[in-house]
Amino acid sequence: MVKYNAMTQEWLDAWKQKIANSKEYREIAKNWEGSVSMIVNPDPEKGIPEPIYLFTDYWHGDVRDFLICDKAKAESANFVMSADFARWKQVAKKEVDSTKALMQGKLKLKGDLTYVVRNIKTVNKVIDLLCEIETIWPDEA
């Protein structure tokens, strides 16, 4: 199985492909509209010297832009999520449930929380598909 370096364009492309290929996702996400950005706070000790900004966009079961971007683009998303690298890694490895991390303040969200709760199955499915990607983490490389 191909492995991808975490938080790179190739990793994002693989994730996008996984979502696009999922019939289940298409069905669950038919009502979802909007972009989600992920901000990875810097952690030099873990190989993250600068913040990383990831932009993903979803529209009624389809996937649109999945980009490494700059701060301004990330902050323009409908939903902006930020956390330390270690926390993102836990989420992507399914060691921590993203909803729990959000409620405990380990993951920060800017955006309409009601919309997220209404569409929580979509959110969970997107993360489940992320967890399926074979990932090389910078602190493990």
């Binding site: 909803t99 409620m103 920060k108 969200l109 929380l113 009601t114 709760v117 209404r118 929580i120």
Partner: peptide
Amino acid sequence: ALAGSLHAMGSDANMDI
């Protein structure tokens, strides 16, 4: 976020999740 959730949806925020 928990407080935000409770403000926006009340305790019934739990129903979907």
